[in-house]
Design a binder for these strands. Sequence first.
DNA 1: CACGATTAAATCGCACGCAAAGAAATAGCG
DNA 2: CGCTATTTCTTTGCGTGCGATTTAATCGTG
Lengths: 166, 166
Amino acid sequence: MQNTAADKIARDRLAAGALALDRQLCFAVYSAGLAFSRRYKPILNALGLTYPQYLVMLVLWEEDGGSVKDIGERLSLDSATLTPLLKRLEEGGLVTRERDPADERRVRIRLTEAGRALRARAEPVPAMMGCAIGLQSEALERLRADLEHLRRSLSGEEERGGDAPA
Amino acid sequence: MQNTAADKIARDRLAAGALALDRQLCFAVYSAGLAFSRRYKPILNALGLTYPQYLVMLVLWEEDGGSVKDIGERLSLDSATLTPLLKRLEEGGLVTRERDPADERRVRIRLTEAGRALRARAEPVPAMMGCAIGLQSEALERLRADLEHLRRSLSGEEERGGDAPA
DNA sequence: CACGATTAAATCGCACGCAAAGAAATAGCG
DNA sequence: CGCTATTTCTTTGCGTGCGATTTAATCGTG
């Protein structure tokens, strides 16, 4: 595989096409997501949480006592992911898992006292992360909103304002 | 945990704080990333690739013959992630893995004929994904650029007013 | 009430993503 | 040259994500 100059030119022209890594929105999102989780890791480590566990705790701090499915809908994760994660939170003493007496199919997740107490220690986390981001809050909010729109489009939750339903 | 109306109001005020899930940029990125990979899955399945494998192939289609480290730097993934992934691509007959004779620490990754041929089948993928996204291309590009900036900030590649070489 | 359909979790298998430790080769320095 | 430090890749272990399957409970219909 010797590369002649002509070969390289030919490859570069192809690379400039639709498959160019650097123009993939998906890669930008993927890569930013990894960067986020790496940045969060040492901070959340101090709280004894992984990044997905932190997200689950955010849900619970807003709305305690939901079922596994409820939490899954909030985060768009399914029970195959959440069940083991929630068991680890339970082992860590942050939540309890109990079958709902009114519907034994459901498992209700409730914060323990330790789980609620952890909220205070998590309070400064967003500000700490904010320092790591070089964007003004208006730009941040626009970016967040664009991503939410993107997620909705990708999930097929089209919300008509221009997107013709198939 | 009976919820009185007062409790709920108290919780909502807390939820409106910095820890509110729906105002976390990190969650928007995380969630959009998962939505992307779910959307890509059936398409890439037809090519016999996972989503991270697809990203590696994008790199190789642009620049063949790099080392594991080279690919890792392009995608910001380390060799612990890439080694097994590349072995699977090798098993699938898409790449070869050979120690570099000039430096036996390196493993050079090269596309096989099948690996190069797969490019043609991948060509329509971006257009297929484009249809799934409800944004104009200008907005898309702005979003992509914002995310790239975000990734850089998070990775500590700060470039305040241009990339200051360390 | 019976019984098939649906729903909610759990379980299993596989592929990441990464920290930590290990192995092999090279670089650097006296 | 010799020896240590560094670089590159590999391996191991753990925690996600998720498809597929299983189990148990509830729903809907007759």
